[in-house]
């Protein structure tokens, strides 16, 4: 059985510093990491690999050369193979473009199961997974928080989460695509020795220009800082002074 996990590299939010115009400081690039829900998707794939013989796990990413770090992470966690579709991502690639390239990569490679994160935590679009399923004609489920192969391996049983904690149980035939939400399984930490080994492991490199050109159907007109929805009063001073100010503000409003 072959499983493909789609992995996106995202900025770590706390290391991402913007100037007054909302531009990242050029000399202080954000630290980047494997997107949280993609890491959970990978963990689900690795658990399947541990519980079944003959499971091979592939990790694929779309992005610039730096995105190789997420493949190293995936290999370090236990993925068997890694593929990198090399493409510049500034401005960010449109989800339909990513889905089209992933579809072209996956189409002839015989994956029984494709896992994606339900969305990436930076842009929260939630589009690539389902677009990819559609392009490949796969049965699919989104926002899955638990998954298991049914005993004869011909299908998958999943549980998906909806608003307000409501849940649905689903069965899907393989091949299938599943987007993984906040599953209770914590992504494992790769050991240092595994990470070092992963650095040297081979990657399948694919230049995006060699793939069919993907149509771009939307364009980003601009970026701006969000408008404050409330007063956003910033307290200044030492921690003790701020605490006193906060106490006074809350008392004035009879909230304390």
């Amino acid at each position: 059985m072959r499983i493909l996990v789609c992995c996106k590299q995202v900025d770590e939010p706390e290391s991402l510093l913007l100037d007054e115009q909302g531009r990242p400081y050029p000399n202080a690039p954000a630290r980047r990491k494997l997107a949280e829900w993609d890491a959970r998707a990978l963990e689900e794939a690795l658990v399947l690999k541990e519980t079944r013989p003959g499971v091979e796990v592939w990790a694929v990413t779309v992005g610039p050369a730096e995105a190789d770090a997420v493949l190293q992470r995936a290999l370090g966690m236990g993925a068997d193979q890694a593929a990198h579709i090399l493409a510049a991502d500034d401005p960010p690639l449109r989800p339909a473009t990513i889905a089209a390239w992933l579809a072209e990569f996956a189409r002839e490679r015989g994956f029984d199961l494709i896992l994606c994160g339900v969305m990436s935590e930076d842009s929260l679009q939630g589009l690539v997974g389902l677009m990819l399923a559609e392009l490949l004609g796969l049965a699919c489920a989104t926002g899955v928080v638990g998954l298991a192969l049914v005993p004869d391996q011909a299908g998958l049983r999943v549980e998906r989460e909806m608003e307000g904690g409501r849940r649905q149980a689903m069965t899907l035939p393989l091949s299938a695509l599943v987007t993984v939400g906040s599953s209770p399984r914590q992504p494992r930490y790769p050991s240092l020795s595994n990470l070092l080994r992963a650095k040297k492991a081979p990657r399948l490199l694919i230049e995006a220009e060699t793939l069919a050109p993907a149509p771009v159907r939307e364009e980003r007109l601009g970026l701006s800082l969000p408008q404050r929805q409330r007063a956003g009063l910033r307290l200044v001073g030492s921690p003790a002074e701020k605490a006193a100010q906060l106490r006074d503000i809350l008392r004035e409003r009879s909230l304390l």
């Binding site: 339909a96 909806m162 608003e163």
Partner: peptide
């Protein structure tokens, strides 16, 4: 809606229709 339901059908339909798609 940009919800667990809307995101469970609309992106697939967008791919099928070859539509432009903006979420959230």
């Amino acid at each position: 809606g940009h919800t667990t339901s809307g995101l469970d059908w609309l992106p697939g339909l967008a791919a099928r229709l070859g539509a432009a798609c903006v979420s959230g």
